[in-house]
Nucleic acid binder design. Sequence first.
DNA 1: ATTATAATTGAATAATGATTCATTATTCAT
DNA 2: ATGAATAATGAATCATTATTCAATTATAAT
Lengths: 196, 196
Amino acid sequence: MRKREGNKEQAILDAAVKVFAQHGYHRAKISSIAEHAKVATGSIYLYYRDKENILLTIFDRFWTTLTAELHIIVKRTDIHPTEKLDLVIDAFFKMFIANSSLATVFVNEQNHLVKDKRSNVAKQFENYLDIAEEIIREGVRKGQFNPDIDIKLFRHYIIGGIRTVLQYWAQQPNTLSLDRICNNVKYFSKNGLLIK
Amino acid sequence: MRKREGNKEQAILDAAVKVFAQHGYHRAKISSIAEHAKVATGSIYLYYRDKENILLTIFDRFWTTLTAELHIIVKRTDIHPTEKLDLVIDAFFKMFIANSSLATVFVNEQNHLVKDKRSNVAKQFENYLDIAEEIIREGVRKGQFNPDIDIKLFRHYIIGGIRTVLQYWAQQPNTLSLDRICNNVKYFSKNGLLIK
DNA sequence: ATTATAATTGAATAATGATTCATTATTCAT
DNA sequence: ATGAATAATGAATCATTATTCAATTATAAT
């Protein structure tokens, strides 16, 4: 027998994130991903059924990781919903600190994947939002969050806001501090623009 | 001579918005746009250089309209920055009331276009944000808006939030009231989640 | 009614790039 | 050292669609 040398599966995934970020999914060429991953074009197909499957794998891992972290945060009883919200936002940003290309791919391709309601990504995303919603409901119950807002809308709004500031950051990851962005987002979401 | 019958240019644009919304720009077929617009495939090329040019025209008109309205709002002296912000958000939503497909196209394709810094869409968008920023600065000057927030970040955040709630709406435009969404967005942006 | 001009058509072409597969290379059990 | 068995290669194939263009049709001026 022959053993697989190195972790080509991961190398392809990493390369794909870079190439997808640079050109967008549809313009990204398999041959270019192969080149970046230092494998032959055909080798890609030993690890992934097709091009779409590469993108799906990227998102699958993304949401699986994030959902696991969210679960832990939601279950905690030692902190207030306000702090939980902070932690969720932290966790979200943390995913991108080491990998700004992932932010770009997330921002640009998430929508297309979610559109297909049968896709696993759509389910994972819905599931994530449902769990996160529980934090908001807890905040409302405890009289800390405004009960009049539409929770479903708010959760979309904040995710969208984050997506876009991330993209802004990903364009110049070295001159902008993700920490600063993260803190601003926490502030916006809780306090808005007005002075109290 | 022969005259052009009907407004094919507009018909193609309208059809393209629908088809781009349904399948995304890259999967959208010129032949399908032609079919929807009730013209022959080749006729598209009498009005638009290529496929990309159709998308660019859609966005060009979108931002031109919106920027004109923004100008008027910013210049007003009879209302407070808070109310100006409301009007800007109103104007934004108004663009989509009659055309939910446009919302989807906006949400999905804007990023890709803006990525190309030389594109006119990128310039128009930057210009729009710059003008809108003036409202925030006015609010800060007048002691109504929090001076500690990062304005550039905030403007991306709110645009992103709006984009995403619009997409949420576009998925089921008949069951969700755009008015309600618009009001929530105004509230989120000004007050955030916390009870005062 | 005829002709010149421009608009329109849609089948044919061309380009692109995902996927396949015949071939070659590498590993390991014997 | 040998030869299964699997991994890897990348040029060839195939499918898809944007774009072109020769032919056709409609309009208006004469």
